[in-house]
Design a protein around this nucleic acid. Structure first.
Lengths: 359, 359
DNA sequence: TGGTCTCATTGGAACGATCTAGCGGTCGCC
DNA sequence: GGCGACCGCTAGATCGTTCCAATGAGACCA
């Protein structure tokens, strides 16, 4: 205790002299400082913070007063070392994709940060090494810098997910395990087919019958899933889909070319697209031909990106409930970290349709 | 040492039995494990990691072989505790703003994550408590969870910056200290006036003479700065600016109304806007009046957001060099953490113009 | 009175890393 | 020959917290 006293004294004796002029910030108070002030042991202060109901009410009040007065909060590093937990969630962000309308991830990150704060977690961002996607994960894992990961880019066969699963690293995926059906990790996803079905029905209800589809290449499971919603809604009303679909890359120019081609070959009165990026390609074509989205022809995108919200006359778009996704992801993480042997389960959410001028 | 042996043995004895089936992940190897395998002391392994040139080459090789074989990386929590540094940079993200074209922060976050990785730092995101913006900062600061902050939203009188400065918390601002001229923290900013000047000159060179300005309200320092670039370029060519400017809120509808009003009252042939959001408002008005951006009339925005990149026919926009900003921010952070008494200095960068169909 | 049980609190050990002081040996210098 | 500096490496202390076993005080019952 005397050592502690000395240390405290050394610190607080600095304070008056350098508080206004010195460049060095003073060390924050520690458990021992609070304990001494409150006249209890370190452990009691620790309990006051972590298990308040173990203390007698009057002791608790005294300790809390000291905590307040000194402005104490537990040192993260020391706590992490002892408890073997960092209360950090790692999330990898891919390279920024310019020229696309994809703002899904940004909206999701926002929601995730908000939600995990309420659960006592912070979000640690890391970048992928270009040629070695797993490097970032491995490093954070071995140095026990994060408690768990959130994996978002499960589009392409989900290599990270299986890599993490092999190493028994705790993680939750945003996106269902398309191929690896035997995987046992928790996941949360949005029912894309339900979204495009919603979009197609919306157009059908407006009287459209020749509704075209512009989606992604056939090897994209997400693309095929979204496409199936369109087919389902069309067939439900006994309408044909042949000749009305196009599958291309997820770029503006692909959407532009595909829509031009479809307009010539199939004369659709509306387009449903697998992404806002493709929908913007359609808008380019309409502009080229002096057609007006919403007046002459309807267009619906997917993601409800900022672009959809601000482009004239407003792009109707399928909106993923990312706030809910974040909530479910954090819920799954908490379950995972509380009792690891829990078997992984999936949660499927339903999107909504943000209706704007383009339809 | 024998305690260490016991602990290792306890751990590794678990390994074969549960490696494939057990739910509990095994503890990663520690310094002591590596030391024992290499036949050296813990400190020597530590040196091999942090000061390799202190070791004899053969010892170094032996230690590195052990590190490799065991897959060791230093435990972050322990290192942080001892060195009183977390190698984390805190950055607050505000509430997601829907309905605007502002993607600046997202692009910046990407760049910051990439750049700080190279400098050995990770980015910790945290959300602002709605009514108490400083709460998040205070908490992270007192618990020594981050080494420094990056402050980005310096628009509104910069309350965070002065709050942090008072507490002598290390931070770097993206955005100059507009009001607090006596502030001593490092900052990085982009010369907005140079950007709008560039934009205006571009239009002048195309033959436009009646170029209108749509900016933010007069109490926005950034808005006035950007406006000054337009005025400068116009006056330089002896052109008047009176009656050609409008100052409104940063929303689509404000831009829409302002541009409609200006078109009626001043008949401009081009618009320079303080943001992409306002520029999108102009595009709305043009659509309403069956005018075509780029053909009948030119429009230039500010930020080079995704919207600008994908909207037909492409919105010319002033592009902030966010990658460079991130590099300078990280550079300033490193300086700050290496020698705190360094006096804060500012770095001003110059934007470029991304020319697209709208001009 | 003495024994058992609970309750609130305590001191010491431990987490895994780095810091500090210091070891014996060799070298260069006056 | 004596002195100090340097080399490569080591043992012990230390960072601030939580875990663990044990403490003394009091209540209760026999």
């Amino acid at each position: 205790m005397s050592r502690r006293d000395d240390a405290s004294a050394a610190r607080s004796h600095h304070l008056p002299s350098v508080a206004r002029t010195g460049p060095v910030s003073v060390s924050p108070p520690t458990l021992a400082d609070v304990a001494e002030r409150a006249g209890v042991s370190r452990q009691t202060v620790s309990n006051a913070v972590n298990n308040p109901d173990l203390l007698r009410p009057d002791t608790l009040a005294r300790v809390q007063e000291s905590i307040e007065a000194l402005g104490y909060s537990p040192n993260r590093a020391a706590r992490n070392l002892r408890t073997r937990a960092s209360h950090l969630i790692g999330m990898r962000i891919g390279p920024a994709q310019e020229g696309t309308a994809n703002a899904t991830m940004d909206r999701f990150v926002h929601s995730l940060v908000e939600t995990s704060r309420e659960a006592g977690y912070h979000v640690l961002l890391f970048a992928g090494d270009g040629h070695d996607p797993e490097a970032g994960y491995a490093d954070l894992l071995r140095s026990t810098a994060v408690d768990a990961f959130v994996v978002t880019d499960t589009y392409l066969g989900n290599p990270q997910a299986s890599w993490l699963e092999e190493r028994r690293a705790p993680f939750v995926a945003f996106g269902r395990p398309w191929e690896a059906l035997n995987s046992r990790h928790p996941w949360v996803d949005v029912d894309g087919a339900a979204g495009t079905e919603l979009a197609t029905r919306h157009l059908l209800d407006k009287g459209h019958e020749r509704i075209a589809w512009i989606g992604w290449r056939k090897d994209s499971r997400i693309g095929e899933d979204r496409r199936s919603g369109w087919t389902r809604a069309m067939h439900e009303r006994g309408l044909p889909t042949t000749g009305l679909a196009s599958r291309v890359e997820d770029t503006i120019s692909s959407g532009r070319e595909a829509s031009a081609h479809l307009l010539d070959s199939a004369r659709p009165s509306a387009f449903v697209c697998a992404s806002d990026t493709l929908a913007m390609g359609v808008l380019h074509t309409l502009r080229d031909r002096h057609l007006r989205a919403g007046d002459n022809i309807a267009v619906i995108g997917f993601d409800d990106s900022q672009v959809a919200q601000v482009v004239p006359p407003g792009l109707t778009s399928v909106r993923q409930p990312l706030e809910q996704v974040a909530v479910e992801v954090v819920k799954a993480l908490e379950g995972l970290l509380a009792h690891p042997p829990l078997v992984g389960t999936g949660v499927m959410l339903t999107p909504t349709l943000a209706v704007r001028g383009s339809s």
